[in-house]
Design a binder for these strands. Structure first.
Lengths: 227, 227
DNA sequence: TCGGTATGTTCTCTTTTAGTTCACCTTTTG
DNA sequence: CAAAAGGTGAACTAAAAGAGAACATACCGA
């Protein structure tokens, strides 16, 4: 599953976390691998993240988390959660995890077809597999409406959203329009405009000036329950 | 199920992964099998993937993963694991539960379009929200194929199955046909016959005598991960 | 609020390693 | 015998990895 370098880095990260609970910086990883530039580390970290071995928060220092280890080494696998930047502003809680799963808050419903339903804060949580986490804070929404059925997102599904204010072309995002109406749609950039594309022939694409649209998060997972 | 060469290669891959957690390259596999060209290895790897013994990430180097081993060899190779909490099978057959989540075994892939894939023996688990459990024993399968897309079940999704040998009309079930071919389909009773209905216009309904069809479980949940 | 320090991110270039495909031949097996 | 599996070699494409620099962001303290 891993290349030699990826494995070497993963082991190093995991050791550092076990030793002192602080994840190494890119420079430290660079030195540990005997490199002269940290861009290579960056690539390795991305590869590990892509393969589901670690998780990280974007643009946060020393915010690596080991999700699993290759089987050979699994005896030492730990679930250290460490965020750097202690004592700074913001309630930046990384969801706690144990070996079973991760709990994330359920923030209400999102009408995939029309408007928002303001985020509520009843104490409601769902647990998801650790691998389904994105990089940042995650929360869940219940899908209402059928505008995304052609992408397999049905009315009543629970979607896992990673908080972010940026998204790449083609990603499914929670988009807030005119600061009042949130929907789940595929995002497309088109010059000055942003297109919010539904996945249902009965709905049409909204084309909006970029400034009217605010990305609130991107889709990273989906849960469905059959009755 | 496997040819001699396929088996030989599978064992080699599994050994390498157990030894150092790094999957072998095509060249290394070529040497291990005493070949002079790696195109043969390519064919063998494809065969193993097609039969569900391994999984690989498309266009990634050294990204092989062993999903199961032929029955007669199971256990042999994993014996290198020292004291992992991963490799040990443990008395885990009864799903442990707490308030966080539940771990259920991942039993392999099910080709929603065509044949079965025998249950494997790797200790692989996914955690799911407690509410997603059915009443009986549950396990997970990875969906392969697109025959259920119109019900929002996509290739690569993980489905949660509750073991049962009965199902009501209209439920989505894992059905074993002639004791050898399992598929995920909507079940319909029609007098003496049972219809296995796909959710994709490109596939057609199978109509079978009731005695040829055995229900193995019913669909109770679905998980999907976006990348 | 400003600027400095520490960190993370991107980009371009280069080399090395690895995966894919194709045409053609040989062996095994039902 | 015919079909399937296996083997060879070469050309081609793509990914992994390393370097170095510029740039962006977060944080901290004055």
């Amino acid at each position: 599953m891993l290349t030699a370098k990826q494995q070497q880095l993963l082991v190093f990260i995991q050791e550092r976390l076990a030793e002192n609970g602080v994840s190494p910086s890119f420079d430290e990883m660079k030195d540990a691998l005997g490199l002269k530039s940290k861009s290579g580390v960056h690539r390795l970290v991305n590869a590990l993240e892509e393969r589901g071995f670690i998780r990280r928060m974007a643009n946060r220092a020393r915010a690596l988390e080991v999700l699993k280890m290759p089987e050979k080494l699994s005896g030492t696998a730990a679930s250290n959660v460490v965020a750097g930047n202690f004592g700074s502003a913001g309630p930046r809680s990384i969801p706690s995890r144990d070996d079973q799963g991760v709990e994330i808050p359920l923030h209400g419903r999102i009408a995939a077809g029309t408007p928002i339903e303001a985020l509520e804060n009843r104490d409601s949580f769902v647990s998801i597999p650790p691998g389904m986490l994105g990089r940042g804070n995650c929360y869940a929404l219940e899908v209402s409406g059928d505008s995304m059925v052609e992408l397999g997102i049905l009315d009543g599904d629970t979607v896992v959203i990673e908080s972010t204010d940026t998204a790449r072309d083609g990603e499914v995002v929670v988009a807030l329009v005119d600061r009042e109406e949130a929907t789940l749609k595929t995002l497309r950039r088109n010059g000055q405009f942003i297109e919010l594309v539904p996945a249902n022939r009965d709905y049409s694409t909204q084309v909006l000036e970029a400034k009217r649209v605010q990305v609130q998060g991107r889709l990273v997972g989906l849960l469905r329950q059959y009755h």
